[in-house]
Design a protein around this nucleic acid. Sequence first.
DNA 1: CATAAATGCCACAGCAATGTGACAGAATAG
DNA 2: CTATTCTGTCACATTGCTGTGGCATTTATG
Lengths: 193, 193
Amino acid sequence: MSQAAHSATTLGAVRADAVRNLEAVLTTGARMLAADPGASIASIATEAGVDRRTVYRRFASREELLTAIYESRVTAIERAIEDARLREAPVAVALHRYVENIIAVNRTWPVDLARMLSDDAIRRRRDACVTEVDDFLRRATDEGLLRPGLPAGWASALLPQLMHLVSRQLPELSPAQAADVVVDTLLNGLRAS
Amino acid sequence: MSQAAHSATTLGAVRADAVRNLEAVLTTGARMLAADPGASIASIATEAGVDRRTVYRRFASREELLTAIYESRVTAIERAIEDARLREAPVAVALHRYVENIIAVNRTWPVDLARMLSDDAIRRRRDACVTEVDDFLRRATDEGLLRPGLPAGWASALLPQLMHLVSRQLPELSPAQAADVVVDTLLNGLRAS
DNA sequence: CATAAATGCCACAGCAATGTGACAGAATAG
DNA sequence: CTATTCTGTCACATTGCTGTGGCATTTATG
């Protein structure tokens, strides 16, 4: 209880290198877990250039580390949606901007959120994002960009897959160029002429 | 060495129920490993309605079981390619037939062959299939079905993803109907009019 | 029915990964 | 420089899965 009497100067600050290590563990973990969902904490720590014990000092359990990684992704997705202004911007503009943003997110946080249905908070935030995009795709159909009469949920399922595919299949493209490919493929397909 | 003297009638035949159990383990294993690549043999056995020990009687190790499952998939893919006559048939016909066949394969053997690069034999057979499809897509471009000038490998990567997506996203569609969706999306995209 | 094949169940050893404790040493902030 | 924070390392208990042996029981087949 003596800690409460300590001033802010006495209480130690968070060290900068600790923050760097934390970020390294999170991004490296995201990359490795995307490649192999069963990756061990030891392998992630080694790849991030950190001891296994250091990871356990920041995260009480494997679940907590995973939660932190998936939360990083969902937070980035929320920002991507906000920035694209899916509700207000012209559909063609919003679509391209959204795709470009998500491609950047996919490259930093390539993990699949479908593997994190256990944590309620994250699942809810993810569901909200999905709903947001579904609404946008409905608007895109209403305003004549997308064809009506497609199988239920087809566009909603196709778009994330295209973004995921281009993110790892065409890594040399910039997010903007990659978005060009995704939007062009989504709208026009690959037919000649 | 007395076994060599035994006649075929003395040597026991393979029992029919054993074959059924084997197939159940393989298909159930494929389904569960697709959902979770770290699924334990115990869980697969339970789901298939057999004892864990029964699995170990047929497969010396986990690796062997996985190899058998992935081999089932690659064999089915080879048959699908042959049946589609990718080299000879008109490109539009061959494409639809190939897609329809692979969708059926995906529903029985949904595992991802990219997770089986360890076994040389399977990897080689997989590579041969990939090459076969790549050649076909080149022919489709040469004959004016697909647009030239796309990013390298884009069509090759997109097609399997579309088939994979429709296989699990639209399970109520027949393989033929699902193939309609894939081919239409691939060639025309989702743009209105 | 009688034989051979196949399965289910119990038990056990080995291994890899998780999670925790303690302590000495390195790095940083004031 | 000094106090504090952070890290690396050795050690240890625990858990879940793999892989194996033995034996009684069930089931298919001729």
